[in-house]
């Protein structure tokens, strides 16, 4: 995201924040290490007079964080972020929040395509879904209290790509991939690059509102597995979680509760509202899966490519602030 923004000369300055150091080379992004709840953010906002905050740090994968960490990061982190953005005389003009279509859940009573104004048809039972709903509630309140600030919430479908690791991508990378026996749900995917492009689009054009983001079309899970070349491991439709639990323990599969629902009923979201703002994903759902396979094949052949870049605080500081660095100009 920061890399994409850097190439835009209209953007005066970019400030990155995270709990870990960035893993890509950033030319002119200032980076701050913070704790996971962003408690320092209100000071930073005051000190730097940022006008746009892009909140991409929500955890949408419950296998990557404990229940407590999930709550801290998603709910408390967002609260701090919004508090910082909403303080008196706040310079913040836009807040972009990267949410997930997990907020719609996955149930038999669902419509085939969810529009943004529809709400889920079954109560949220999983931790990550509940926390995301809470976060979106916070953002809604914030938007109501700060009508002058542009608030954008993007709900992304299942992300697949070269780098990102999700329970779905992890499962597809193995030779056996779980499914729920008797079900073959239709799924929708969005490509990593499209995620970045979309964040960039709404930030640059200051698009307010709530949007679904997904590639066009839907694929049955069996077809996804066939495309990737993995075999399906059917888990019985009754006592699904208990049967899956030991296999999860052994590291054979990833099977968070929200995936259990998804692999029964699937999910589709309508992206026509986003299309009206002038953005459509480059990759269709099938294209996303195909791109994922290509990346997977490469990784299988050459192993994980070594990190091309390591962040060194001192060196970065030198490049950015030393008067010894000569800015090169005159290039296009």
């Amino acid at each position: 995201m920061a890399q994409a923004l850097e190439s835009d000369p209209e953007v005066e300055m970019i400030l990155g924040m995270g709990t870990r150091e960035p893993s890509v080379a950033l030319e002119r992004t200032e980076f701050v290490r913070a704790d996971q709840t962003y408690s320092i953010l209100s000071r930073i906002v005051r000190a730097t007079q940022v006008d746009t905050i892009v909140h991409t740090f929500l955890v949408v994968d419950s296998t990557r964080a404990s229940a407590r960490a999930l709550h801290e990061i998603n709910v408390i982190g967002t609260m701090n972020l919004l508090a910082a953005a909403g303080q008196t005389a706040s310079p913040v003009r836009q807040v972009v929040v990267k949410s997930s279509t997990l907020v719609y859940g996955s149930a038999a009573t669902d419509p085939v395509w969810f529009r943004e104004e529809m709400s889920r048809t079954s109560p949220a039972r999983t931790r990550v879904e509940r926390s995301l709903l809470e976060v979106e509630g916070l953002v809604r309140d914030f938007a109501e209290d700060n009508p002058a600030t542009v608030v954008t919430v993007l709900r992304f479908a299942n992300v697949l790509g070269t780098d990102i690791v999700t329970p779905i991508s992890a499962n597809l990378s193995r030779s056996l991939c779980p499914s729920v026996a008797g079900y073959d749900p239709l799924l929708q995917f969005v490509e990593e690059d499209d995620v970045v492009r979309c964040l960039e689009h709404v930030t640059r054009h200051r698009v307010p509102g709530l949007y679904n983001v997904a590639g066009a079309g839907k694929l049955p899970w069996s077809e996804v597995a066939a495309m990737v070349g993995t075999r399906l491991l059917p888990i019985p439709p009754v006592a699904t979680q208990s049967v899956a639990a030991p296999m999860v323990r052994l590291g054979l599969i990833d099977f968070p509760p929200e995936l259990g629902d998804l692999l029964r009923y699937g999910r589709g979201v309508d992206t026509s509202r986003l299309a009206k703002t002038g953005f459509t994903c480059r990759y269709t759902s099938a294209g996303t899966v195909e791109n994922f396979i290509r990346a997977l094949r490469l990784r299988r052949s050459v192993g994980k490519p070594p990190a091309s870049y390591t962040y060194e605080q001192d060196i970065e500081q030198f490049f950015r602030h030393s008067s010894a660095v000569v800015p090169i100009s005159g290039e296009t």
Binding site: R28, C281, T332
Partner: peptide, 17 residues
């Protein structure tokens, strides 16, 4: 210095699969 790292801009074609 923005021009130091010219990033490839995405081509506007959809990838169907």
């Amino acid at each position: 210095r923005a021009s130091l790292v010219p990033l490839p801009r995405p081509i506007d074609e959809t990838i169907e699969g």
